[in-house]
Amino acid sequence: MTVLVSQLFTGVSIGAVLLLIALGLSLTFGQMGVINMAHGEFIMAGAYTVYVLQGAISGAGISLLVALPVAFLVAGALGAALEYLLIRRLYARPLDTLLVTWGVSLILQQLARDIFGAPNVQTRAPDWLTGNVPVFGDLTLSTNRLFILALAALAVVGLTLVLRLTPLGRRIRAVVQNRDLAAVSGIPTGRVDRLTFFVGSGLAGVAGVALTLLGPIGPTMGTNLIIDAFLVVVVGGIGTLKGGVIVAFVLGTLQALVEYTTTLSVAKVVVFVAIVGFLQWRPQGLFTLRTRSLA
């Protein structure tokens, strides 16, 4: 029983990590349709932000909390710059976007290698994030995973509120549903694109901060995550947020439960097979965005 609960918790926390890395992508890929291969490198940028701040600010806890907004800004600025300099010129050519952003991702990786060195680096976690909370009996929940869970929840709620309630959110939704109509209604679609990219990339930076609590930071950490992130968005249904949320937690839990009874490699295979099967049945993903657009 204890084992099952703690394993479910592990699954949920894997889901939270998946969700954090996919959330930004659900904006840039899901809403805007841009395949940004450099998304993983924005995660890396967020993670290195923690590393740099930890060198500047001695307290591990304070530097981590400061890193959250800073990483959002750093990764967001990188994303906005990428959109402004390259992607906006290629909106009509998705294949070129793919190749160009892949090139950018390689450049960013090499840049990280030149600045921080090729070996991976680690950060110190504050003491309150290395312990655990006893629940009952043998069952304990580790504080770093609770923190990541809370962060993921906060990000989802925040993003939902922005999309639902703010003028920016309204504009983003308008542009997604019908770009031409939005443009003739006076919405500056170019600026909306840039802001969407800023927020989506910024969320990748926040995911990077969370990941420093679990493992090492390295130039290639982003590439390992980008596939999972794309999977979550595609299976969840392009253009919807709730699909991604559900899928992240389902995949995380599935992986944790299968891994418990088998091995990590088998669990990965099972998750992949499940995804392929699901997409055979529902190629459009879990939820679809209904629009009146004829395109």
């Binding site: 890929f29 395949i35 793919l98 253009g239 997409l279 190629p283 993903g285 395109a295």
Partner: peptide
């Protein structure tokens, strides 16, 4: 320009991940 193409985009993304 961007909206729509849902299916093709999904298929493309799958191809990409594969």
């Amino acid at each position: 320009m961007l909206a729509g193409h849902g299916r093709r985009r999904t298929a493309f993304a799958l191809l990409l991940t594969a």
